[in-house]
Amino acid sequence: MRIVVASGKGGTGKTTVSTSLAQVAAEAYSVRFLDCDVEAPNAALFLHPALATQREVGILVPRVDTQACTHCGKCAEVCQFHAIAVVGQTVLVFDDLCHGCGSCTLICPEQAISEQLSVIGVIDTGLTPEGIAFAQGVMNVGQAMGVPILRELKKWTPEAMPATCDAPRQPLEIRDAPPGASCPVVETMRGAEFVLFVTEPTPFGLHDLKQVAAIAREFDLPAGVVINRDGIGDDAIDTYCAVQNLPILLRIPLERRIAEALASGQTLVDAAPEYRTLFKDLLERIVARMNA
């Protein structure tokens, strides 16, 4: 089972919800947590995994063998991103424009192009104290494209789950999505089975919720909503959810003591244990909807 926690608008509490959901789920499932916000990965600050491995990831960029190259210009012609240019007797490669598609390598009549990894970020993995298998993608500063990191991150499979005493547990994957509603969010949702939207009851929250809900509809994914900071704004989210037939699965009112605890790096269920039951209930409702 694969659940994505998304929001559209940033700062509505995606990580707050996804980390608490993971902690509660770890009591009954074999949980794999993927922090897919490669530009601003924060879940590790709350789940405290012991990050044991780090792997560089990137895209394959072309390198031209100047001896074999005849400067025919085919590579530059097929490159849609103008990452390779042939002018006179010179071939120029611009790694930061390259999408790593391999088209130039395939087209070169002299087989003069080989490929090498251009690193754009890393994937860290480790176990949390609760036994959650944790992985995060971290994009290097100055890089533009995080999606290749996401693709690799989603392929990650924990080598060995911690030996638990009881019967084998059902696997459950939770993906913490980036904000926005463009390509990285799409890549995060691809292959998921449920999307949990975390929003806040303000015009910004609603506007951006509509954007991500449109992506989930395109993937035909079942979805539900968590309203965070319930009570600070208006009831336009409730109206929207009723019209769209989106179930509101949990409401989290704004409480100063909770805001303080979250700010310091505690998870919601640790800071306010009364939420443990609510999150168990949330998880059950999600699982019921996935199985429906």
């Binding site: 530059a76 103008h82 240019a85 120029l92 611009f94």
Partner: peptide, 12 residues
């Protein structure tokens, strides 16, 4: 109308 690398394309 290039998505990126307009300068490279124009120079070529």
């Amino acid at each position: 109308s290039a998505s990126g690398g307009a300068g490279v394309q124009a120079a070529q």
